[in-house]
């Protein structure tokens, strides 16, 4: 009797299904518990991959709940490629629709923050521009210059205090208080660094991708008249996130 990989996979992902006939224990009986070795390997290894990718979510919901939730996710969204450092990109969206965590409204955005940090960890390298070059530019030339950000730079905006949740969980930060937060992720060397931005900071940094420094500043000031440029630029410089400054 032939066992196709379609049969094998279906049995692997659903422990309620019988072990595919045609598999044997080599002693004259069906494979039985031996098939469970593969079921277990798949579920445990993929759950571990999600745990590594989303340590804050794991800490927030607890080990037992996380493992049960991961079991649901990995069955409906198994990895699409063998690069496990990319597995779980759709986990934040899954959390948004997963009824048992519906009362933890901030959870999907905390997961988006962790996903952004993981992308930053594996992103391409870029030597930072000399910060002095920024200070030395005359104002009119600065306004027309373009700031090219390092590939490891990410932004996450949320109506929830996701940076505070991350800090409270991972760095013994104070208990979060309600409020929207915008987080900049930079990679000063090898470890991604989440930094809380002042109001308008995300508008400014997002606009830098397609606009001059001056146009990005105007964008930020339209939404936030008292936009704090110094703090925002300081976060980019400290995070070594400005890769190049180009003029013309």
């Amino acid at each position: 009797m032939t066992v196709t990989q379609t049969d094998f996979r279906a049995g692997l992902m659903d422990a309620a299904r019988p072990v595919p006939p045609g598999l044997s224990d080599a002693h004259g009986a069906g494979a039985g518990k031996r098939f469970d070795v593969y079921r277990n390997n798949v579920a445990v290894s993929l759950t571990e991959a999600l745990e590594q990718a989303f340590p804050t979510i794991h800490a927030l919901v607890g080990d037992e709940f996380f493992k049960a939730m991961a079991g649901v996710y990995l069955r409906q969204s198994p990895p699409a490629s063998p690069i496990l450092s990319q597995y779980g990109a759709t986990f934040p969206r899954f959390l948004s629709g997963f009824q048992p965590v519906a009362h933890l409204g901030y959870l999907p955005d905390v997961a988006r923050l962790e996903q952004a940090m993981r992308e930053s960890f594996h992103a391409g390298d870029a030597a930072p521009a000399d910060p002095a070059a920024l200070q030395d530019l005359p104002p009119d030339r600065l306004m027309s210059a373009r700031l090219i950000l390092a590939p490891a730079t990410r932004l996450v905006r949320s109506p929830w205090p996701i940076h505070s949740v991350w800090m409270a969980t991972n760095r013994d930060g104070p208990a979060p208080t309600p409020g929207a937060q915008e987080v900049l992720i930079t990679r000063p060397e090898f470890d991604p660094l989440p930094t809380l931005l002042p109001a308008g900071g995300a508008d400014f940094i997002e606009a830098l991708a397609t606009h001059s420094f001056g146009a990005a500043l105007a964008t930020a000031q339209r939404g936030t008249p008292d936009f704090d440029l110094t703090t925002t630029l300081g976060a980019l410089v400290a995070g070594r996130a400005i890769a190049r400054i180009t003029e013309g």
């Binding site: 996979r9 798949v42 290894s45 198994p78 990895p79 490629s81 063998p82 496990l84």
Partner: peptide, 8 residues
């Protein structure tokens, strides 16, 4: 198999 990587 069928676009799913099962990591085993």
């Amino acid at each position: 198999h069928d676009g799913a990587f099962l990591n085993d």
